[in-house]
Design a protein around this nucleic acid. Structure first.
Length: 259
DNA sequence: ATGTCGGCATTGTGCCGA
């Protein structure tokens, strides 16, 4: 089972690029963030015609997450538990049925800028809620993946210019500590388990030719329960996509599971 | 401090969010 997480920055703007990508890279499961679309206006037919089942949790204009899958999906749940008043669409999960069943969770963690401030407070509270859901997933002792745009730069080696991010909501010490707290419950950061060197990023700003200069950050992560980590045979970043016409500012990050 | 995008409200262009 090959799973990709991809912040697409608007499904409408990315429709042709996405269809090309699904046709050539052909993920079994694609976890999409920032679809910026309501459920009812999401162009589901375009993806269904390519053989993908479509599950969305959308919102007008901002945020929004979706799962596209060539494998059957069961038990779809929308919204991160822990706050019934939270109206932001940032979480959807389902079970993908391959040779083995894998719980796949697609998340778009709040950006949190400007920090400090209300938006940063929301980010940290959201991360606490994520931690609660993460604990439940661990307790189930089954293969599960929490993947998406975490808006967290875990360590200095995950940024081309780490000093530029220390005061930013993506790189502040409190942000990193909250991420480590989740990781330390017993998850594997799939990419770091497979690659120890610096210079590998998943996001490059549209400004200042950041991609050409590889001035990026690694903020799109796949966190694996021990049972999922046991199945992992590979993890890679598909950076090439960022250099195409009209790209998202993020690029897909992949895992392959023996499942 | 700013550069660029996408989407919205609106029908020109400025604002928000990233």
């Amino acid at each position: 089972m090959r799973i990709a997480t991809f912040n697409i920055n608007g499904v409408k703007a990315r429709l042709e690029g996405l269809a090309d990508w699904l046709g050539t890279s052909a993920p079994d499961v694609a976890l999409l963030q920032e679809i910026k679309s309501l459920d009812e206006t999401f162009p589901r037919e375009r993806f269904e015609d390519l053989g993908y089942g479509v599950k969305t949790h959308g919102q007008k204009g901002f945020n929004g997450v979706a799962i596209l899958s060539r494998l059957p999906l069961e038990d779809v749940v929308r919204g991160l538990p822990g706050d019934p008043n939270d109206e932001q669409a940032r979480w959807i999960e389902a079970t993908a049925i391959g040779r083995k069943a894998v719980r796949v969770c697609c998340l778009y963690l709040p950006n949190g800028n400007p920090a400090p401030g209300e938006k940063y407070d929301y980010k940290l509270v959201w991360m606490k809620r994520l931690q609660e859901r993460a604990l439940e997933l661990l307790a189930a002792e089954e293969p599960a993946v929490m993947a998406g745009d975490y808006n967290v730069i875990p360590q200095d080696e995950d940024a081309a210019r780490p000093d530029a991010w220390r005061e930013d909501a993506l790189g502040r010490p409190e942000t990193r500590a909250a991420f480590r707290e989740i990781l330390n419950l017993g998850f594997t950061d799939a990419f770091r388990a497979r690659h120890q060197d610096s210079g590998h990023y998943s996001f490059w700003d549209y400004q200042r030719n950041a991609f050409d200069r590889n001035d990026g950050i690694r903020i799109d992560h796949l966190l694996l329960t021990p049972q999922a980590a046991d199945l992992m045979s590979g993890c890679w970043i598909e950076a090439e996509l960022r250099g195409r016409e009209r790209p998202s500012d993020h690029t897909p990050v992949w895992i392959e599971l023996d499942a």
